[in-house]
Every structure is written in C-alpha cells, then in structure tokens.
C-alpha cells in the first residue's frame, strides 16, 4: 500500500511520519508516534476517549484521517503538564477523585480544556454540554463536572 507523508506538531514538537493512506489520527498517534494518551474506546466516534485538540478545536481522532492533519498543531493530554507540574485541569481531576479506571480521563480532559480555553468561567450547563460527547462508565459524571468547575475557578483566581 502506498505510504503518504504526514507532518504536524504534537504538543509543540515536530513530528513527521509515513503512514498508510486511510490511517486515522488516533492510530497514527498511538502506533506510529507512540503517544498512547488518546484511547480507542469505540473507533466510531461515539465515546470521546480519543479526543485531541487540533488547531484549538476538539477533534475525535478516531474519525480524523491523519493525512488531513498536515501542518496542524495537535495537543493531547500527555502534553498538558509542563516540567512535571500538572495542568490545573489535571490537578482538579486528581483532587476531585474524578478518575476511576482512567480510560475516559484523557478524552475528558481534552474536552474540558477546549471548553475552558473558549469559556474560562463556564456555567454548570456549559460544562455538561462540553462533556456530553464523552462516555464514562465508572464515575456517574458528577466528580468530573465538579473537577472542571474547580479548574475553572482556580484558573480565574490565577488570572485575577
């Protein structure tokens, strides 16, 4: 099968790979580049575990062809902490005991980050709306909602 080149930045670092045409961004990230923080929960765009941020927007990497991402800036949950310091969202998920099995967590954090990037002080309804594409089977969602609201509050305190 013909290989196609893809080149993008992942968490600020340049990445270039040859992939099979038709490879999803999820599989390219996990199998080719070695970033396994996006998870394959359904490979059909219904669970949100594979969510990444692509040029500032939330994307389901299982429904995105890698070859369409040339030149893009991609962020994943593995790239959020800097110098060993957790991102406020990561900290909030820890403190709120918002992870159980942890499989949905990277996708949840991506969805929450896009929300807070666009809406720094979201209402509860806005948080619910932002997380509504992500499935969690363990927590009952409430701790995750609380974590996002807490992270928003701590962000606004930093800004103030």
């Amino acid at each position: 099968m013909a290989k196609v080149p893809v080149q993008f930045t992942l968490n600020g670092a340049e990445k270039a790979e040859f992939i099979d045409s038709g490879t999803t961004l999820l599989n390219a990230l996990r199998d080719k580049i070695g970033d396994t923080s996006p998870k394959g929960g359904c490979h059909q765009g219904t669970c949100g575990a594979c969510s990444v941020i692509l040029d500032g927007e939330l994307r389901l990497s299982c429904l995105t062809l890698a070859e369409t991402c040339n030149g893009a800036a991609i962020t994943t949950t593995s790239g959020l902490s800097e110098g060993g310091v957790l991102h406020p969202l990561q900290r909030a998920f820890l403190d709120a005991f918002a992870t159980q099995c942890g499989f949905c967590t990277p996708g949840m954090i991506m969805a929450a980050k896009v929300l807070l990037d666009h809406t720094p002080n979201p209402s509860r309804d806005e948080v619910v709306e932002a997380l509504s594409g992500n499935i969690c089977r363990c927590t009952g969602y409430e701790p995750i909602i609380q974590a996002v609201l807490t992270a928003a509050r701590s962000n606004s305190q930093h800004a103030a």
Binding site: C42, T46, C47, V128, E129, L131, S132, G140, Y141, E142
Partner: peptide, 17 residues
C-alpha cells in the same frame, strides 16, 4: 451496537444524589 444506540444517562441526565 454503539453508544448512540445503547443508552445510558449522560452528564446532563444526572439525579441529585
């Protein structure tokens, strides 16, 4: 066969617990 057809309450459907 997927999470669109197999229904569960989402974050907007929570009971006060």
């Amino acid at each position: 066969t997927d999470f669109n057809q197999y229904l569960m309450p989402g974050p907007g459907d929570l009971a006060e617990t």
